[in-house]
């Protein structure tokens, strides 16, 4: 082989590699190119739903094809709810969002216009296919005999809850306690404040987030009772073993409704729109509801839930955030600067 040919071969070779890299990048950056053949749905969700949506996605893909539709690829993203909403606002191409708070979806709607303002009325139950509530996680055997909110202000009880100023979960905890106190004292707000002051006098440390509070309670062994999401409490139980803790369900707590919706502005085809809405509607099907229960959420339709799984969820009165005038009203009143939490915490 003449020498000139080998030297001429080098730049060609290099160009081929560059072309390969470019093609590789193009393949990953242009999901739309394949959208004509198969439908893709990206579900942008929050942290604790991972196992649920893994199973639901598998179930829905089968159901979708059984209905005579084309190939469907389901992609999944998880993170903190607020951060996930921010990513969608910054251009993460979510087809559907399944987040922790309606305020996070509202933020996407108002900042991008990719979701209509009335999104929450598009699906049943305020677009919340599964719900949760705030419960108590206590040490194994419940040594302090805690059964309801009233027991938390006993002198020898230490309560672990994060700081409502920084943690979304902690705000739910606060409002749940407030709702019980209002009910217990016949709507007397002064007495409710006294109760809250006593409660927070029993809180030795305010962590900044729910995960930190869980660690304080579970790993560092601090406190007698942790105020936590019911689904997170079950996860902690699974992780640490059934013998580490008990779950105590109070008589009154909050109704948390993690909402879902389609991000209309990111939908590129009719087939994708159809699949996205079907994906969310089927969350209300008996099969999906049973899956949600298995992953520690409370469901609306329990017809396909085995009785022993249902027994894990004792009945209680759950107060919706709407009774506090929604988050738009409750946030400044309770947790704004100089709000009820500040007054109570400073007056300890």
């Amino acid at each position: 082989m003449p020498r000139s040919q080998t030297t001429a071969g080098t730049p060609f070779h290099r160009r081929a590699i560059l072309a390969l890299i470019a093609a590789g990048l193009a393949a990953t950056t242009a999901p739309g190119a394949r959208a004509q053949e198969e439908v893709q749905i990206l579900n942008v969700s929050y942290d604790p739903t991972r196992e649920f949506y893994r199973e639901y996605n598998a179930w829905f893909a089968d159901w979708w094809q059984a209905e005579g539709n084309g190939r469907l690829t389901l992609r999944q993203s998880h993170g903190g709810s607020g951060g996930q909403a921010r990513a969608v606002i910054d251009g993460l191409e979510a087809s559907v969002v399944t987040l922790a708070l309606s305020a996070d979806i509202d933020a996407i709607a108002t900042r991008t216009g990719k979701i209509p303002e009335d999104w929450q009325s598009r699906l049943a139950h305020n677009s919340a296919p599964y719900t949760s509530t705030i419960v108590f996680l206590v040490r194994d055997g419940n040594p302090k005999g805690i059964t309801d909110w009233g027991d938390l202000v006993a002198e020898d009880v230490e309560v672990i809850t994060p700081n409502p100023k920084t943690s979304g979960g902690a705000r739910w905890n606060f409002l749940a306690a407030w709702a019980w106190a209002l009910d217990a004292y016949g709507g007397d707000e002064a007495q409710a404040r006294d109760y809250m002051a006593q409660l927070f006098a029993n809180v030795p440390v305010l962590d900044t987030g729910a995960r930190g509070a869980t660690n304080t309670f579970a790993q560092r062994g601090l406190g007698d009772v942790l105020l936590a999401w019911e689904n997170e409490a079950f996860l902690a139980l699974e992780e640490q073993g059934e013998n580490a803790f008990d779950i105590v369900v109070p008589s009154i707590s909050m109704l948390a409704e993690p909402p879902v919706t389609v991000v209309d502005g990111n939908i590129t085809s009719n087939a994708q729109r159809e699949a996205a809405f079907a994906y969310l509607r089927q969350l209300y099907s008996p099969e999906a509801q049973a899956l949600a229960v298995r992953h520690h959420y409370r469901a609306w339709d329990t017809s396909k839930v085995p009785q022993d799984e249902l027994d894990r969820f004792p009945q209680l009165t759950r107060i919706s955030i709407d009774e506090f005038g929604g988050w738009a009203e409750a946030q400044p009143r309770f947790f704004g600067d100089g709000g009820i939490f500040d007054q109570i915490y400073e007056g300890r």
């Binding site: 990048l25 990953t28 950056t29 242009a30 999901p31 739309g32 190119a33 990513a87 910054d90 251009g91 993460l92 191409e93």
Partner: peptide, 12 residues
């Protein structure tokens, strides 16, 4: 993004 080139939230 309108030209289907994703930089953030993708490999690039």
């Amino acid at each position: 993004i309108t030209h289907d080139m994703r930089i953030v939230f993708a490999l690039p």
